[in-house]
Design a protein around this nucleic acid. Structure first.
Lengths: 159, 159
DNA sequence: ACCACATTGTGAAGTACGTTCACGAATGGC
DNA sequence: GCCATTCGTGAACGTACTTCACAATGTGGT
């Protein structure tokens, strides 16, 4: 069991190390093309979900609508997106990728795919498959633990 | 090859999903005890490296000394650390954990170990071992890729 | 002993990301 | 036509970073 605990710690260490490195890489790579992680996230969602009102973006990104306003302001200023009028609802503005924004965003998607390929290349194919499976299991478990913890906190607060 | 690419993408997806969930969990858990990720990071380093001047903390955390000043200000205000005078260098202040800070920080280490155990429990022992190995390999590769990319950028800038 | 240089920490100012609260404008159900 | 809801944003704030400038201190060379 001492051995298992050891491996579990190694696993978590590896995971943390990967997350730290990935984030730093992402941030520097994005900075090179004039983007920040949060703004890139918006672009990403616009590619995935098409032109949307800010409300929808806020839901998709799980941030407040107010925050989306700021992010879109910056992206608009830098020429990545425009705010188009909604055809029927005059309150809503539809955030749309410019040509340049679309190019950049598509490049991000391609870059991500390429990174996945490069990473996978250092492991045998069957390992990659097993790894992907196991990570999914771990992610599920982590979600479950998080949900439980949140429920416990809510209970505590409610009492 | 289509199959391999697919698994590679699944791998990266799983990794990203784990990182997102882990970070959110961490942040909410820390907030419950009056800490932020950045401040917890300082506490963590103080447990690992013992009482240190801010300069050393800045190096360990890979942030600017100025930033450490702010983090230590907050931790001091909230009673997690104190600034003690350096025995020989009157410029330096040695950041030291208070009793409360030490308790909290030790709890963080324990919580991390417990999380590792809980996560590992959902997979067979041999899988955990393999997973830890593979993640280390991936982390190494990612570091290598990042280093290469940075070198390429430096070259480009130098020309 | 002295001077040049390096180091430690911090004030000032700026950027990014996120929040809450309040509010005007537009929608939509009844 | 009215009232509740929704969409976006101004104002104000908290946190985490950065760079630049600077005073106080430490240190090595002559």
């Amino acid at each position: 069991m001492g051995c298992m605990t050891d491996d579990a710690t190694r696993l978590l260490d590896g995971l943390l190390r990967l997350t730290v490195t990935m984030e730093r890489d992402m941030a520097t790579g994005l900075a090179a093309i004039g983007l920040t992680p949060a703004r890139a996230h918006v672009l990403w969602e616009l590619v995935a979900g098409g032109p949307q009102p800010q409300q929808a973006l806020a839901r998709a990104l799980e941030v407040t609508p107010r925050n989306v306003t700021g992010l879109v302001d910056a992206l608009e200023r830098d020429g990545f997106v425009t705010r188009e009028p909604h055809p029927t609802d005059r309150r809503a503005a539809i955030v749309t990728l410019t040509d340049r924004g679309d190019e950049i965003a598509t490049g991000l998607v391609a870059g991500r795919r390429e990174l996945a390929g490069q990473l996978a290349r250092v492991l045998p194919d069957d390992r990659v498959t097993a790894l992907a499976d196991d990570l999914a299991v771990l992610a599920d478990e982590l979600d479950r633990l998080a949900t439980d913890a949140a429920a416990a906190r809510t209970d505590g607060a409610a009492r």
